[in-house]
Design a protein around this nucleic acid. Structure first.
Lengths: 168, 168
DNA sequence: TATTGTTATACTCTATAACTATA
DNA sequence: TATAGTTATAGAGTATAACAATA
């Protein structure tokens, strides 16, 4: 960090708290990206050794199938904001590891319905516990309960507007 | 979405608002990832055609160098939460495109000081305007001003705890 | 004709480690 | 011995488009 007065220093501070945080115009996109990097790394660390260790898409896909037996790939894609091709590869790897089973949908022969296997259910349970434990372990030192709750509420609200189908 | 009562439906709702959003235990990690995906795609779209179109690492690196002439690669790495090898590749591409110049640091022959070129400064100005414009265009329809301000404050606070050096 | 899912490709991102030059 | 930066590599993520089967 260049200090005020030091050669090359440019004061880009936008508020009165003396922070040098508006490199991106004080916008949210940079902070969101940074937080996502930090949270993802922390979670990957906690998931090490499990079969779904890396890649958040895999984790949410597993938990979605576990919570919603019979869910279809295209619906997963919509909810995790990835394309269908990406979901196909995730599902393929799950099937190869006997985590998920796939069968033709009842009313639509184009579609598939996905369910976790017995093994997949056990894995999902482990993953879910780790994810829940992370919430407190990671955010506890960073935020008070009030700020945390407000953040959850705000981000849920945004997610629902971005993926309306996710609301019941 | 499986409706309550439908075959395979499992009620995982954790609050009383009837939302099916706690697939990850109502935790923040999933919402943060989703928001980052949406914001990044939107920003990439707006940056299309510019030389730094893809990859948020490149954008913040450019704006950091523009705001902090003389900044060193290792400090960039710390602030954008990437490793030095990654920053090296970003800088290399900037230099190849005459966006950034690099010279040996005054007091340390191991280190480099980075500055934007004339061309890079013009590019940074364009990028900064786009990023600032996105803030309103993207978040305006999603959040009221009060929620937006609270979100900025909370995420800035978290970022500062994760990267203490970013505070002056 | 539109939709579901698959396949293929090319490119980017990321983590890791080994390496050099200097402190 | 530690630090700044580079190079190399392998793996994972991503966007895209073309494709088959079904609605």
């Amino acid at each position: 960090m260049l200090a005020p007065g030091q050669k090359g220093y440019v004061d880009t501070t936008a508020d009165d708290r003396g922070l040098d945080l508006d490199v991106l115009g004080g916008t949210l996109s940079f902070f969101i990206r940074s937080l996502d990097i930090a949270v993802s790394r922390d979670l990957d660390e906690r998931l090490k050794g499990l079969e779904v260790a890396r890649g958040k898409g895999k984790i949410t896909t597993l938990l979605l199938i576990d919570s919603h037996p019979g869910i279809r790939p295209s619906e997963i894609a919509e909810r995790i904001m990835k394309d269908r091709a990406h979901v196909t590869r995730i599902i393929d790897s799950f099937i190869a590891h006997d985590i998920v089973s796939r069968r033709t949908a009842d009313q639509d022969n184009r579609a598939y319905e996905l369910c976790v296997t017995e093994h997949g259910a056990a894995l999902a349970k482990q993953v879910r516990e780790i994810v829940i434990a992370q919430e407190e372990a990671f955010f506890g030192p960073l935020l008070g309960k009030k700020d945390h709750d407000a953040l959850v509420e705000t981000l849920q609200k945004i997610y629902l507007k971005l993926v309306p189908k996710a609301g019941i």
